[in-house]
Design a protein around this nucleic acid. Structure first.
Lengths: 264, 264
DNA sequence: CGGGGATTTGACACATATCAAGAGCGGTGG
DNA sequence: CCACCGCTCTTGATATGTGTCAAATCCCCG
């Protein structure tokens, strides 16, 4: 705990200082190293003098709230987060689930206030990237700028993908896409793409996919009966047949079993 | 037409050279000046030496295709564009409508290839922003970097908003939000927020909102009967009662007329 | 003036929401 | 250790919003 050390970081809030500071070289051990933008930075420009604060967020706690003043971005070091938006009439919707290596808070830049709530779904840890620091980094280091823009662009593309699924797919396809998306995220991180734990509730999945929790539950049940997946204790998922699961997304009406066939 | 002039721009493709070049000071007259990122740049750093190519895109023509190599961003000078994604099974979905001052192509940065198709809905014109030029600009000018990140962040936030509407709203609300969104875009540009032309078809609106064209048509018809809007020639829209239209979005079940009430 | 896409409108089907009840599970406290 | 509580999840019966199919009209464009 060297939170009192003089630091080049200008806008680290009190809450952000809570966690221990760590050196860039520790990023070499970070599980999200190859995915983490700040780790890339560390490679591009040795900034061992720099210190990035970490912050722990326990299950159910918020990393930031909608409307909070925007000062920092965060990269997930460990754990899982959900981001949600609150609609005018009180309903809210999950806009994303995020695990190690992903950047949180990008939507806050435009209005200098976070546009979403961000809550940990399990005990988690993030790196704090003060925005001033990010801007400075991006100005000085062409590589950092490029990487950062790439991540923002990726987020835009990801959301377009979700929009497409919400707009054109039916329940079976949405859930299949959701499971396969989780699977490939895990694969990118060297974790098993076939077996993982759902850290979110059926309701949260439904909110993300524009479905009700009962529908999510029923679809998962059908997938299990069809032998596509195996569910243990509601949360432990094993993809028994990723190929047929993926086929649900590319179905050309006539060649694929309809949802009715699945329910039979 | 000085397309043969030696230019500092490295990666302007042949197609991009088609249009006339123009000087930064012409941006002073650009209708999207206050919204256009490149115009802001012009203000921040005089770059009268720089030349930005323009490009005309006629109704129905593509500005870029999904999968095309990514070299440039574009800002809309005049006209209207739609961006669409193609799903694996052939269905496609409109992910956005764009008018003057908006930036196109942001999703291409991450993979260096456009992730969407972009088609003009009427004869239109764009400024070409070669990405190398944008990167250079962002490195040299702190203000340009900030503005650019702000626009990307805004795009992320916009998409989150659409996701929320696709996920939780029903047809009436989606269409109301769509109309009000168009209205405020027009207001930002000093155009009438009450009266404007829909440059897109019912099918394109439906695709954007995750509805079928018939549903869009029916909702608009109900809105007209209810006195919320006035439609002339299918495409000319006048918002007769924006307040009640907005109230549809904030409805607390009991106080608002249901969709059934509207249809009666 | 003709033709073809866009739009409207109706009847009906169906996927998903809604409502409801019960089971499973983990945590907590006696 | 067990009993209880609350939350999550499952499953069934029914309701309903929207999709689907079809036909007629409109209107823009050549």
């Amino acid at each position: 705990m060297q939170a009192t050390t003089t630091s080049p970081l200008q806008v680290v809030s009190d809450r952000d200082i809570q966690g221990a500071v760590h050196r860039a070289d520790q990023c070499a051990l970070c599980p999200s190293r190859t995915l983490c933008w700040s780790a890339d930075c560390a490679t591009a420009q040795p900034f061992s003098a720099q210190r990035l604060a970490k912050r722990r967020v326990r299950r159910g706690e918020s990393l930031f709230h909608m409307g909070d003043a925007f000062h920092s971005l965060y990269t997930v070091r460990s754990g899982t987060f959900k981001t949600t938006t609150l609609l005018e009439d009180g309903r809210d919707q999950v806009t994303g689930f995020h695990i190690s290596g992903e950047i949180l808070g990008l939507d806050g830049i435009s209005v200098q206030a976070y546009q979403t709530d961000c809550v940990a779904l399990e005990d988690s840890e993030v790196c704090v990237l003060p925005y001033d620091y990010v801007l400075g980094m991006a100005s000085r280091e062409a590589g950092a700028l490029r990487d950062f823009l790439r991540m923002m662009s990726q987020e835009i593309a990801r959301e377009q993908c979700v929009m497409a699924s919400l707009g054109t797919m039916q329940a079976d396809e949405r859930v299949a896409m959701f499971l396969l998306g989780l699977s490939s995220k895990h694969a990118e991180r060297g974790l098993s793409p076939r077996s993982f734990i759902l850290r979110m509730t059926r309701e949260e999945i439904g909110s993300y996919l524009g479905l009700k929790l009962e529908t999510v539950s029923r679809v998962l049940a059908r997938f299990q009966v069809a032998g596509y997946i195996q569910i243990t204790n509601s949360r432990q998922i094993e993809l028994k047949d990723p190929v047929r699961l993926r086929a649900l997304l590319t179905k050309d009406a006539q060649t694929q079993p309809s949802s009715r066939a699945l329910s039979a």
